[in-house]
Design a protein around this nucleic acid. Sequence first.
DNA 1: TATCATTGTGTAAAATTTACGCATTGATAT
DNA 2: ATATCAATGCGTAAATTTTACACAATGATA
Lengths: 254, 254
Amino acid sequence: MDQDLKAYFAKTLAEVSIDCVIFGFHAGELKVLLLRWKETDGWSLPGGRIFKEESLNAAAVRILQERTGLTEIFLHQYYTFGDTNRNTHFTEMELLERLEGFFGKGIFDELLHNRVVSVGYFALVEFALVQATPDWFTDECRWWNIADVPNLLFDHNDMITSALQALRQQIRNQPIGYDLLPEKFTMPELQKLYETILDKQFDRRNFQKLLMSYDILEKLDEKRVGVANKSPFLYRFDKQKYEKAIHSGISFSM
Amino acid sequence: MDQDLKAYFAKTLAEVSIDCVIFGFHAGELKVLLLRWKETDGWSLPGGRIFKEESLNAAAVRILQERTGLTEIFLHQYYTFGDTNRNTHFTEMELLERLEGFFGKGIFDELLHNRVVSVGYFALVEFALVQATPDWFTDECRWWNIADVPNLLFDHNDMITSALQALRQQIRNQPIGYDLLPEKFTMPELQKLYETILDKQFDRRNFQKLLMSYDILEKLDEKRVGVANKSPFLYRFDKQKYEKAIHSGISFSM
DNA sequence: TATCATTGTGTAAAATTTACGCATTGATAT
DNA sequence: ATATCAATGCGTAAATTTTACACAATGATA
């Protein structure tokens, strides 16, 4: 296994890597996918190295696929992190020593002491479709509520903070939801998604009017059944019009 | 000189570099600063390598300083370009061969055949203050009207295109002008800047009302003299309020 | 069968954006 | 010296968008 890793290192770039903030939405909460490093309680974002013959975007797609099993997902490059101390500055010494002990000095140095620039992507995925899968360095891969994210390894807390800012920028100028929600959803569910991302409440009547004005939603004849009180109608995105709105841009002004 | 270059290569990252789109505004035209490579008619963006102990942002500031002489400038990281063929794909073979002939195979390979990821920044500078200075690889450094930019080396035309998109995004959500205009300017000059960047005409009365509503401009008692017809008043940005508006954000909705 | 939280639909007020009028200015032409 | 004229300063009304809120309908639960 150590040999495989050496070969992997040899075939990939040493000074640039990729980290991904994978957003999901479930039970009215915004979540991110995190990995726990083997034999430690240190968590980090999903990430990986770039093959020498592989484009940046292709590498990001591959990493996403490896961690979630998904291939068709929204992926957006939002910032490149290039501080010289980003490997270690935000991580406690004790945890670094534990990692060094477990992985051995060779791997540890290559991975954590080299100066590496990391390109940040964020992804929007449908929660229910994700098969969370750890990588070689990690034991566990699972969702965390955005509000409950612990202190992470490296500069990954910063990465999440600025990914959330980028997502908020995104939601104000482009339709969002096709990638985060199941195919059919109710208007209150869509509203809750917007409210969660922007951390802001909206009047449901005005929200519905604004969203419908974008002409990207299709109201279905079905209603959600078995839910408390009055059954809400189901909606679905019109993929064609949705794509068009992504290109022309919208303005979510609430 | 070749020794210096080797030492420079040894002290800098090999897989990541920086390229900067430096915007200026003069005589009602938006301009970018370009460099002509020695003994060729191939033009490129200002760029450079990153010292191993230098953060990405510090390297960008240094490169800006080296090309313009300016230290206090608006600088914004907007995208990282990571296609595998970005070195050569958009450049004619003939020109590449001329560069190889002039610089020698060693330098050429290091510079143009290695796979390099480039972090794109754009800068906004005051045209009159710039001391355009070529670097080791180039003979000439001068302004080009954005509309007249020729076919550039590497993927640099793409870089300008997406930098302009990022600038347009910027101008709609943040005040712009402090970095591009001289200290004192007239309302029509400010309007022309907005119109040039967004490639769109505005009603001058509505433009003035909107800009004044941001509460970042200070109307002076002076007028611009010696200009045709009625002399317009001079304005200046209130730096304090301008900074505050950058943080809170504005919405340029015209 | 009554209750009640939630949803569906609509309307009026407030705020913002857009369109445009008119007097003033000061260099230029006569 | 004076008339001309394009550009500027300042303002108002219409159109549109955003915001606030009213009320009936629904369907699970008590």
